[in-house]
C-alpha cells in the first residue's frame, strides 16, 4: 500500500505558488534567516490566516510554503503516519497549490512537514524538517506574561525550567515529562522541541538536516541549524533517558523504534506497532516481520 513518490501534479493557477503571496513568503524567509542565525531563539512573524483551523498545522504550513520550490519533494506526517487525515490534507493542499511532487518515503523527501515525530530513517544534509508547534515558549507553563518570558530568555534566566523537572521527580520518582521535553540549543536558548516524544530528542542533536519550527497561533518561528548541539535538560542524579519498550513491533519486529500501543479486542489484548508507518513498511518490504 505504501505509495512511492507521486510525480508532479498540475498546479492550480487560481492560487499563487504554494498559496501564500510572495511578500508574505519573503517576510517568513527573513524570519527564518534570523532564526537560523540565532539557534533556538523565537522570532515573531506576521502569521497569516490559512484555510484550516489553528492547531492543525498552520505554522508549519506557512514555513513549508515559504521554503517550497517547484523541484522539492514533500512528505507530510502526523503522529509519524503518512495516511492520517491531517497529513493527507496538507500533502494534497501543496500538491494542488504548488504542483510539487509528494512522497511517503523519508529518503525521497526534500522537505518533511511533521507533527509529533522525527522519522526513524536517519535524515541527510539535503533535507529540511518543518515542525508544527502549538506552544513555542517552554517557559509559558510557569510564566504567563510574554514580556516576562522574553526577559527570562534574554537574560538566560532558566532556573524555573528545572522546577518542573524537580516536581516530576518529587511526584513520580523520575522525570515523567514524555513529550515537548525542553532542550538547550547551542548552549544558549532553552527551546520547546514541539510535542515530539522525548524519544526523538537525541535526533535533534548534531542533526545533518535543518530543523524549522513554526507556531501559527502564537506567530513564532525558530530553528535548529544543521550540526548544532542540542541537549535535554536534566539533573546530575536523574539524567535524561528516552523511552524504552519491552515489546517489539508486531508488524516489522523492530526493537529500537517508537512504538504505539493498540488495543485490538474487547478483552484488552495489547499490540505494539511502529508509529513511523513508512519505516515499518520498508522493513516489511525487506522481508522482516514481527513473528
Amino acid at each position: 500500500m505504501n505509495a512511492a513518490t507521486q510525480p508532479r501534479p498540475r498546479r492550480d493557477d487560481a492560487y499563487n505558488f504554494a498559496y501564500l503571496d510572495e511578500q508574505t513568503k519573503r517576510m517568513i524567509r527573513r524570519g527564518l534567516l534570523k532564526a537560523v542565525a540565532i539557534p533556538g531563539y523565537q522570532v515573531p512573524f506576521g502569521g497569516r490566516e490559512m484555510p484550516l483551523p489553528y492547531g492543525w498545522g498552520t505554522g508549519g504550513m506557512q514555513l513549508t510554503a515559504a521554503i517550497l520550490g517547484a523541484d522539492d519533494v514533500l512528505k507530510v506526517i502526523d503522529q509519524s503516519a503518512d495516511d492520517t487525515t491531517n497529513a493527507v490534507s496538507i500533502r494534497r493542499f501543496f500538491a494542488r497549490t504548488a504542483g510539487v511532487a509528494t512522497t511517503e518515503q523519508t529518503a525521497q523527501a526534500s522537505i518533511i512537514q511533521t507533527r509529533h515525530r522525527i522519522p526513524e530513517t536517519p535524515l541527510t544534509a539535503d533535507q529540511i524538517m518543518v515542525f508544527q508547534v502549538p506552544n513555542p515558549d517552554p517557559l509559558r507553563f510557569i510564566e504567563p506574561l510574554e514580556s516576562e518570558t522574553r526577559t527570562l530568555h534574554a537574560l538566560k534566566d532558566y532556573g524555573v525550567m528545572h522546577v518542573k523537572l524537580y516536581e516530576d521527580i518529587a511526584t513520580f520518582g523520575h522525570i515523567a515529562t514524555a513529550y515537548a521535553y525542553p532542550v538547550t540549543v547551542a548552549g544558549r536558548y532553552v527551546m520547546d522541541p514541539s510535542p515530539i516524544p522525548k524519544f526523538d530528542n537525541p535526533k535533534l542533536h548534531m542533526s545533518p538536516a535543518l530543523m524549522l519550527f513554526g507556531a501559527g497561533r502564537e506567530k513564532r518561528l525558530y530553528a535548529v541549524p544543521p550540526y548544532t548541539q542540542v541537549s535535554s535538560l536534566d539533573f546530575e542524579d536523574h539524567p535524561f533517558a528516552p523511552q524504552r519498550w519491552e515489546q517489539h513491533c508486531a508488524i516489522c519486529g523492530s526493537e529500537d523504534t517508537f512504538l504505539d500501543e493498540l488495543i485490538v479486542d474487547d478483552q484488552g489484548t495489547q499490540s505494539f506497532v511502529c508509529s513511523d508507518t513508512d519505516y515499518c513498511a520498508q522493513r516489511v518490504a525487506q522481508g522482516r516481520d514481527g513473528q
Binding site: V160, V163, Y166, D237
Partner: peptide, 16 residues
C-alpha cells in the same frame, strides 16, 4: 520542596 529549591536551581544546582 520545589519552592525552596527554585533559587538554588536558578543558581545552577543540578543535583536532585
Amino acid at each position: 520542596g520545589a519552592n525552596i529549591g527554585e533559587r538554588l536551581m536558578a543558581q545552577g544546582v543540578r543535583n536532585y
